[in-house]
Design a protein around this nucleic acid. Sequence first.
DNA 1: GTTAGGAATGATAACATTACCAAATCGTGC
DNA 2: GCACGATTTGGTAATGTTATCATTCCTAAC
Lengths: 353, 353
Amino acid sequence: MSEDGSGKKTKPAKVPTLSRKPTMSDVARLAGVGTMTVSRVLSGTAVVSPETAQRVRTAIEQLRYRPNEIARAFRGQRSKTIGLILPYLYDPFFGNCAHAVTRVAKENGYTVIIATSNEDPETEYGEVDRMLQREVDGLVAIPARQHDSILGRNLLGRTPLVVFDRLVADRTVDAVTVENLAGAQKMVDHLIGHGHRRIAFMGLSRDIFTINERFLGYRQAMQDAGLVEDAFFGCDSEEGTVAALKQKMASGNAPTAVFTSNTLATRYVLSAILHLGIRIPDELAFAGFDDFDMAEFTAPPLTVVRQPAQQMGEAATKLLIERIAQGEIPGTGSRVVLPVELVLRSSCGCTNR
Amino acid sequence: MSEDGSGKKTKPAKVPTLSRKPTMSDVARLAGVGTMTVSRVLSGTAVVSPETAQRVRTAIEQLRYRPNEIARAFRGQRSKTIGLILPYLYDPFFGNCAHAVTRVAKENGYTVIIATSNEDPETEYGEVDRMLQREVDGLVAIPARQHDSILGRNLLGRTPLVVFDRLVADRTVDAVTVENLAGAQKMVDHLIGHGHRRIAFMGLSRDIFTINERFLGYRQAMQDAGLVEDAFFGCDSEEGTVAALKQKMASGNAPTAVFTSNTLATRYVLSAILHLGIRIPDELAFAGFDDFDMAEFTAPPLTVVRQPAQQMGEAATKLLIERIAQGEIPGTGSRVVLPVELVLRSSCGCTNR
DNA sequence: GTTAGGAATGATAACATTACCAAATCGTGC
DNA sequence: GCACGATTTGGTAATGTTATCATTCCTAAC
């Protein structure tokens, strides 16, 4: 049988020391085969005789050959890469989302290109553009604000897109979200159950899908109970939030409970509460949307709506990979809505702990 | 002068509607020039007559042409891509690092490929490998534990690497870190200044560079004051931490202060403190390494060593981009060490607020 | 008028890989 | 012994871009 190096027409079997990275033809030459055979051994798409395959594998090891993914992507028009765009990375919520996306991507052999939009549609547009230039196979994104046009499918051509956490106006885009409205409504109902009648909503801009949905949940709960709304949407700075809360508390009909739109708003409101020396929950009961790591160690521990950040990122990425695999974008988008969970600590007046 | 469409030998000026993405030769055909001219207009590397350049630019706009970065990378052996590897993304500290890296990369025209090691050297090795296959121009990484061999420069060939937050054994690798040892030492000195004599160190594994450095800072401060160490390194679960603290507090020489190695340890220790009903700072003073968003709202607000996460990511990325630009890896690595800051709140017994 | 020199532009090859087709080899059945 | 089918292998082309070299055209100097 074909002994290795039995010397007939095999090229000199010494392993060449290359200064450049070895390529497929280096491997082919060393193994005494054609490049296609090497390619076949690597991809496993066609049958190669066991002896040849072994010879090729030996050559690959000797040269420490690794296929050039850029060349593969160039040749094959599929890069095994997905793009991930989200507003920020320093926010733990988004960090959790990103973590899940990278995990699922890796599990499926995809590499992740990441970019942040800073909530700015222009930046987001630029990043989408860059990713398309890089030939990503698909995009997972948390849209910047509501600026739908940017992530409308038209712009992307044949590149699939899945949005998560927030929706875009184009309802043909696949999306994964959580029960923002229902979760907020339940939490406000809970506050009402504690006997509160004047409940304030404090949040960021209604431009952001999730914030708006949560506000609508609050509104629904208030309306159903025949109560009047008291909403503030400027919790994007400490000063603004302090001023707003101060004004509310000083007015004749000061709220007895407050519900915040997300962790950032929670932070500013907590800061305001501290500044103004308000006691929680006696003077003001507190509940927020979005749980965070230290929520049980605050003074007092915070009652929040917990949303499954990692599950959302996971579901979105799986959906995207499915779309990439089936190779076409359906006319009508999937809609996955994940449940949220009320985490009752003591800031709302519950005595659970 | 050459009017547009003055009809002599210009190809029909109707804009073709392509189903595929337009390429450079589509642009060239429409503009009636060669591909090289288009290439020159885009890169600006050589002179093109103003009229021709204008004609090319018009064609680019009409076709909505965008250069294919994969082809560019393939041809040029430089991908304008950097790889970022860190342990986790859900940890806000790492999230801050990642955010800074993506920002600086974008500012310099680089795209970021991201991956997580989960603190596992094997996984890290795999990710480095994947990134090299993708021809990244350089790597920024927070090494998984101390497993130096993985991120030793030998493995990377000619691809520059900058590590940050943690060092690797190979001291020829460029690195950006913070004053872990000095910061910890100062904080423990501060506790000693409050009159504490029995100070416990509670942290994660010494396998992690930063944790070990902080422990050494603690050790130094204790030794200098002639005090005995009392360290625990198993704060990687709530149960373990509760058990450890319980044992310490029950022992004859219970600590009067505790210093934690990082946010995760802080979390578990706070949890243990809550479980055991210990009062801070009266029964046990508290200080930790690494500030976090809600540290001023805990009960009581936490005294911590604050480290500049974003600055670190920024410095590391800038250094990497410099290395890529100069095209060679120096024999001896740079070492940037950023200062930390003691943030005194009330958990250590300070009455500042 | 001729030619040298410079500016502008174009043709070609190369980058590493894989799809497609062609060729070689082998065994088997008549 | 020969032909045929199956199995295995190799050659070629193509992917989009840019470096290199060649070519064209124009101006200016003699």
